[in-house]
Nucleic acid binder design. Sequence first.
DNA 1: AGCAGAATGTAGCGAGTGCTACAAGCGACA
DNA 2: TGTCGCTTGTAGCACTCGCTACATTCTGCT
Lengths: 183, 183
Amino acid sequence: MTKAKLNRDALLAAMAGHVLAHGLNTASLRPLAKAAGTSDRMLIYHFGTKDKLVSELLQFLAAGLAERLTTALPQEKAPTVEACVSEIVTLVRTPDFAGYFRVWHDIVASSAQGQPVHAAAGNAIIDGFLAWLESRLPDDQPDRRRTAAAMLTFIEGTVVMDAVDSGAIADDGLAWLFDKQRM
Amino acid sequence: MTKAKLNRDALLAAMAGHVLAHGLNTASLRPLAKAAGTSDRMLIYHFGTKDKLVSELLQFLAAGLAERLTTALPQEKAPTVEACVSEIVTLVRTPDFAGYFRVWHDIVASSAQGQPVHAAAGNAIIDGFLAWLESRLPDDQPDRRRTAAAMLTFIEGTVVMDAVDSGAIADDGLAWLFDKQRM
DNA sequence: AGCAGAATGTAGCGAGTGCTACAAGCGACA
DNA sequence: TGTCGCTTGTAGCACTCGCTACATTCTGCT
């Protein structure tokens, strides 16, 4: 059992790499297996079903994203909300995170189509992101939770705009918010 | 040729209905054909390739969305930015628009994977949405373009949050912005 | 050593994918 | 009426999909 667990984790790590590079919704068993150095036969053997595999893979990826965020920006407090938002937007546009956000868009699309596994994963990722954002806000910031909620919503919008090559519009929006000292 | 053109438009309308109900990225030729009362054979005959078909379908859907937006909220000026954003968020959450936004998430996901057809369509949709938003801003609003950019980015974020059942967080963010008279 | 159970390879099933070859029907026009 | 080109049906190709049946190897325990 322990052996199998280790094996599964190794498989998940390898498959996560493949998904980060090539997308989630277009990933089928045989390429995933190849990336993990095994066969579709064995993936079904270990995970039972593709749905279960995807579910575990999503948890694995969510954990990886959370870890990357916290290591990239440890729990120091940002001086202002403005600084907090802008440093996160910059971070999120780093090539290191591109793969994660490609997967994120796949999760959102599947959730919108009513896939419960993806919706649950998306929800969990959002909650984690929100808590992390809140922890980075300045100590004296009032209404921390809702401030973080506004930041998160804006960041999500920015990520979407980036995906359709309209990042400049998000930049304009961000600049407008900051110009007016609205955040 | 004219006959063929009419035929194509009818096909596009029928296929658009199917896509709005069942999603874009999972749509294959045979179900699309069935929805349009024809065969995969004929779809390829009329459009040449699935890619071209999708491209035309996206244009058709974008036009439909734009029309729905303008008929739902004609070009009256909103009294305040706050009112403008909140009426649009309400509108966008109407069941009538659910199908369009499911397709929108598919477009975003495909764009993020590097599909140029989808990226182009997404870009066009964003530009149209932005122009429409700008036209609805109060006349005395300064910095109209960037104001609209900020609104659009926030609305996109809200739509994403809705997709993963986290709409309440977007509501919190919106409330925070309005509380502080930031917009 | 022998045996049970876990792990793995080979081959394939039935369904679905985009797309095509071939032929027949259809209309308009000579 | 005959013919030509646009339109359509039938059948199928080569491929991928998730998944399974069957057989074999490997591993750990007694």
